[in-house]
Amino acid sequence: MARSLAISGSATLLASTWSIPLAVKLVIGGDSRASRLALDLLNSLTSVPTVVIGLVMYLILSRSGPLGFLNLLYTPVAIALGQAVLVTPLITSAAAASLSGVHEVVWEMAMALGATERQAAGAMLREALPSILTVVLLGFNRALGELGIALMLGGNIRGFTRVMTTAIALEVSRGEFELALSLSGILLSLAIVVNVAIRRMGERR
């Protein structure tokens, strides 16, 4: 369970570091053709199956792939990287939707008071923080619940890359349905607890 949390948490944080600034950039450039195209593309990518991302990342990280020299395949880092790629379109497009709600008013107000573009973007982010937190949470849940990437890039190695979803798949293949159901219950409870905790945090802010 701790491994699942750590891997999916790192993946979400990693994806957030580029997805949220990208969302800000896209919202600021809202009317430009490039921004609109990028948002359309990201929206489409949110529905790409996890096995497709798993396959592409497998080819990149495999020994003969461009990043093969890093020897990351079948490590927790590989799963985290794959999950980060998976949740990037989701976090970017949902964050852009949240930010566009405050962009028009907060951006102009900040600029009208003499903000630099960076300061205005910061004000916009602060104002949208509760919804941005929800978006990050959405990304975390997506990463935590995916199976294809964890299986293809992690290999389900016991004590090393086995996470909740791959453990459930393994128990089902063994016919251990009771254990699989228990693990599913734990995964579901975990998702609920993290959801509630982060939402409460957002409300307090």
Partner: peptide, 14 residues
């Protein structure tokens, strides 16, 4: 920064 504009729909932040 020597000019300040105030919008007709007042914006307040959290």
């Amino acid at each position: 920064r020597s000019v300040v504009y105030v919008h007709e729909s007042p914006v307040v932040m959290r």
